[in-house]
């Protein structure tokens, strides 16, 4: 029963336009960022700033932009950006997927057919793992593809041997795992509040609390999702 429900939930998610719009937006933001980095790497830098500042920053800025637009360093940059913006996509997606089931009375349909509530909610929660991976993986793939010609243009070729696929996979999983707290909280609020507004509002408020605690540097900050994600990435770097 669990597996059948899980597949039904996955089918529902992949047929939601909202999900694909979110993925498309994340891909678009990634590609814009990469193109901007590439322009900085190959074009004139800080044309309107003071000349002395240009002399100081030009090479460092160009080096940073090159690293952010070319293989193999581009992957870490894409994952870091995704981790910083995908939380909003996750909150909106989970809030809509779960809370709207109450508005549409569709949960009653499943429960009224003898599906145990706990199994239904467990399948629903488990089915959110795949979208979390997709919102990280697809921008990474799209960004990697765009960065390939940038790399050839700047470095004169692609060296796949430089790519540490094991570390890349771990970084991908760490980024996706860093989104779990947002997904879990929004899921909980949607089930408890049965309202999309409560779920989305609570999820976004949690993010702002997270940002405030991180910026203020309180001792709790490392245990909040931003701190968790940073810690995981440090761990991946250490393992590699």
């Amino acid at each position: 029963m669990f597996w059948r429900l899980f597949l039904a939930e996955e089918a529902k998610i992949t047929k939601r336009t909202l999900f694909w719009v979110e993925v498309a937006l994340l891909i678009a933001l990634t590609l814009i960022q990469l193109t901007s980095n590439y322009s900085t790497a190959v074009g004139p830098v800080m044309a309107r700033a003071s000349e002395s500042l240009i002399q100081i920053d030009r090479e460092a800025l160009r080096a940073r932009a090159t690293a952010s637009a070319t293989w193999p360093t581009v992957f870490a940059g894409i994952l870091a950006n995704s981790g910083q913006i995908a939380w909003l996509a996750v909150i909106v997606l989970v809030g809509a997927l779960v809370a709207q089931e109450y508005n549409w009375r569709t949960l009653h349909v499943w429960v009224g057919r003898g599906v145990p509530r706990l199994t239904l909610l467990a399948a629903k929660a488990a089915s959110l793992v795949a979208p979390l991976l997709v919102v990280i993986l697809l921008p990474l793939l799209a960004g990697s593809l765009l960065a390939a010609p940038f790399t050839v243009s700047i470095k004169g070729g692609l060296d796949l041997g430089q790519v540490d696929f094991g570390r890349l996979t771990l970084s991908l999983l760490a980024t996706a795992f860093g989104l779990f707290p947002y997904a879990a909280l929004t899921f909980l609020l949607a089930v408890a509040g049965r309202s999309t507004v409560t779920a989305l509002g609570g999820g976004v408020a949690f993010v702002f609390l997270n940002i405030a605690l991180t910026l203020s540097g309180t001792p709790v900050a490392p245990y909040m999702p931003f701190g968790l994600m940073n810690g995981l990435h440090r761990l991946v770097g250490h393992l590699a």
Partner: peptide, 16 residues
């Protein structure tokens, strides 16, 4: 309830 069919009030349907 696995052997029961039900329609209670407005039917629960996925509009999309």
């Amino acid at each position: 309830l696995r052997r029961v069919g039900a329609l209670v009030g407005a039917p629960g349907l996925y509009p999309y």
